[in-house]
Design a protein around this nucleic acid. Structure first.
Length: 322
RNA sequence: GGCGCCGUAGCCAAGUGGUAAGGCAGAGGUCUGCAAAACCUCCAUUCGACGGUUCGAUUCCGUCCGGCGCCU
């Protein structure tokens, strides 16, 4: 029933293209609530390095999906998909337009297309298994994964561990679960992909890293560590944080911090572009797969101009589609 | 002016008389519950230039060019 899956605008693009600014400009024109699809902004207190919308903007425009867990906690695409589905209806009921904004393609997909139905996994056994798997060397881990799931195609210890976890805890291979059924997504996405020529994007990345450092990224990390958060906590394992933690631990010269962050941010942006270029395929469900379901936008223009275009286009697309 | 060392991809860098490691950067890609993660692929017909020795030279010899150091 496509009717139960309303069309929802989804604003994506690599870091530093200007998603937040466009969302803010759009909010000036229409009452909307931002649902952040960002695997890092879910962590409380990690504000500067994750480039969260500032308090002033958040006071003006409601934001969901931010400050959900402690930096030491683990969050996941599945949890996001469930929670965001709830927010989506709540926002609609309140008569506002939900706008998904985010750079985490995997989260967006989980929400739009659904994941497989994961049976409940025993937390203790899961933890013990992870510990055990962490002790294996890469080759042994991969062999286990292949033995437990013939369709395992590699992808390093992280994915191999996942294969072991699912197979050993549920008695069925991951690929089998995936084959069986994919949950229905909570919405039909209308993708707006913000793009910028590499050169320009790099410049914006460098500027943003400088701004983060000037805003006190190092202190933010230091404060979090002082609070007792482990240096290898999942919240501190992202771009910018990892490097800063290394610097504070003496593993990276302070003079090299800035460039190290710029470098990993670029690499991250590149991965995001690859994702949005190849993984955004709209599900070939129903009659709706039309080319305009992925709209690529030149982000070099002003946020206001983009917002105006966006709104016009949105009205046409949504009227047409409902 | 003399002596010595060095010159390998955009950068760093290993190397051998027998047909150019690796890292960074760059490019492309994978992606079903850690995704700002994890992982994969590509990237020097060529080793400063020109000669010589040799079956064969990036590797040995000579000259030149460039850089560095020391001496005068």
């Amino acid at each position: 029933m496509t009717a139960s899956r309303p069309l929802t605008p989804v604003l994506v693009g690599p870091t530093a293209v200007g998603k937040t600014a466009v969302a803010a400009a759009l909010a000036e024109r229409i009452p909307l609530t931002v649902i952040s699809a960002d695997a890092r902004q879910v962590y409380r207190r990690l504000d500067i390095g994750t480039a969260k919308a500032d308090p002033e903007l958040r006071a003006r425009v409601p934001h969901l999906g931010i400050d959900l867990v402690e930096p030491g906690e683990r969050y996941s695409a599945g949890r996001f998909a469930n929670e965001a589905a709830g927010w989506l209806t709540a926002v609609r009921v309140a008569g506002r337009l939900p706008l998904i904004v985010g750079g985490t393609g995997f989260y967006v997909r989980a929400l739009a297309d659904g994941l497989f139905h994961e049976p409940p996994l025993d937390a203790d056994r899961r933890e013990r298994l992870r510990t055990w798997a962490a002790g294996l060397d890469g080759g042994a881990l991969a062999r286990w994964a292949l033995r437990l799931d013939a369709r395992f195609t590699g992808g390093g210890r992280q994915r191999a561990s996942r294969v072991l976890e699912v197979a050993l805890l549920t008695g069925r291979s991951l690929s089998l679960w995936q084959q069986m059924a994919r949950a229905t997504g909570a919405m039909r996405p209308w993708y707006i992909v913000l793009t910028l020529p590499r050169e320009l994007l790099r410049r914006r990345i460098a500027e943003r890293v400088d701004a983060m450092l000037a805003a006190g990224l190092v202190n933010e990390v230091r404060a979090e560590l002082t609070r007792g958060t482990a240096p290898d906590a999942s919240g501190l394992d992202g771009v910018g944080y990892r490097e800063t933690v290394a610097m504070l631990a003496g593993r990276l010269p302070e003079a090299e911090l800035r460039d190290a962050i710029v470098r990993s941010t670029r690499a991250y942006a590149k991965r995001q572009e690859t994702w949005f270029r190849n993984q955004l395929r709209v599900q070939p469900s129903a009659v709706s797969s039309r080319p305009d379901e992925v709209w690529t936008v030149d982000a070099a223009r002003s946020p206001e101009t983009i917002a105006a275009d966006l709104l016009e286009r949105w009205r046409a697309v949504s009227a047409d589609r409902r």
